[in-house]
């Protein structure tokens, strides 16, 4: 089983996780920029974070034969803090980078006027930089949050086929399906979505435009739940090809719209010297 995790926060994961993910079949990931648990208080903090997403994390991933790409954005929660707002000016610089394949996570947290502005501004950046967009949906007040997000997408000139609306469930999938946007599902140990529920959604709504991710981060989460979802699909009677469609081809197609997805030479392009690297302890 080959796996492309289209949404995972590796910054918050250990090097051991990379090893376990590689052993489970994960070959590529997209890490979208988000909040870190501890709120940031200045734009410089974002500059270092973005630098890590296009520097250290890809280096760490490559040690395990995993290709790391990023999505860059000022997230909606911190968009509400005036001390962080300057970070919005940094975003375009990072959208120009080779390994950046989307604008994200954008969208809503508490649906404030500040979030409206930053969401719209970053959708416009997605158009300017010819990148797809990854839209986070709120944990609270999700149903209205999804509806409002879809309205913002409709009011933008972005092609819905270049937008994924993420963290969906049984209640919110229908509206996104009808909008033409891609549908993202974050499979978690005991909240958002489980492998079994995910399989049922795939049975009802089909495999097209479906993206399954672990969204693993600093919270209770598991980077191997993409694999567990593939196994649950097989157990429910889906074929190997179906699993490959959902866990590989779909994310490749979606992020491939950036023109920057690089999946060549996944095992051979090791930038370390003779295998000496953090695999052996680093400095």
């Amino acid at each position: 089983m080959r796996i492309f995790d289209p949404h995972i926060h590796m910054t918050s994961r250990t090097t051991d996780d990379y090893g376990r993910m590689a052993a489970a079949g994960v070959r590529a990931v997209v890490e979208p920029a988000f909040w870190l648990g501890q709120p940031r208080t200045n734009a410089g903090s974002f500059a270092d974070y973005f630098a890590s997403l296009v520097g250290w994390e890809p280096f760490r991933a490559t040690q395990f034969g995993i290709r790391h790409h990023a999505a860059i954005a000022l997230n909606p929660k911190e968009a509400n803090d005036p001390r962080c707002r300057e970070a919005l000016e940094l975003v375009p610089r990072y959208l120009a980078k080779d390994s950046v394949v989307a604008v994200g996570e954008i969208g809503y947290d508490a649906m404030t006027p500040e979030e409206d502005d930053v969401f719209a501004a970053q959708l416009a950046m997605a158009i300017e930089y010819e990148l797809p967009a990854l839209v986070h949906t709120p944990h609270r007040d999700k149903i209205r949050g999804v509806a409002r997000s879809l309205e913002v997408v409709r009011n933008s000139t972005i092609d819905p086929g270049r937008v994924v609306v993420d963290h969906l469930n049984e209640v919110t999938v229908g509206a996104v399906h009808d909008s033409g946007c891609w549908m993202g599902f974050s499979v978690y140990p005991d909240t958002k979505m489980s492998p079994e529920r995910m399989v049922e959604i795939l049975r009802v709504h089909g495999l097209e435009r479906m993206l399954v991710n672990s969204a693993a981060d600093w919270g209770r989460s598991d980077p191997l739940l993409t694999r567990r979802t593939g196994e649950a699909m097989l157990a429910a009677g889906f074929t190997d090809d179906d699993v490959d469609t959902v866990l590989w081809h779909n994310p490749v197609t979606f992020f491939g719209q950036s023109g920057r997805l690089d999946l060549t030479d996944l095992r051979g392009g090791d930038p370390t010297y003779e295998g000496n690297s953090i695999l052996r302890g680093g400095s």
Binding site: A51, V54, G55, W56, P58, F59, L90, R93, D98, S99
Partner: peptide, 9 residues
């Protein structure tokens, strides 16, 4: 250098 990715740096 400061705002570069690893290849740019």
């Amino acid at each position: 250098y400061r705002y570069g990715d690893a290849d740019e740096k």
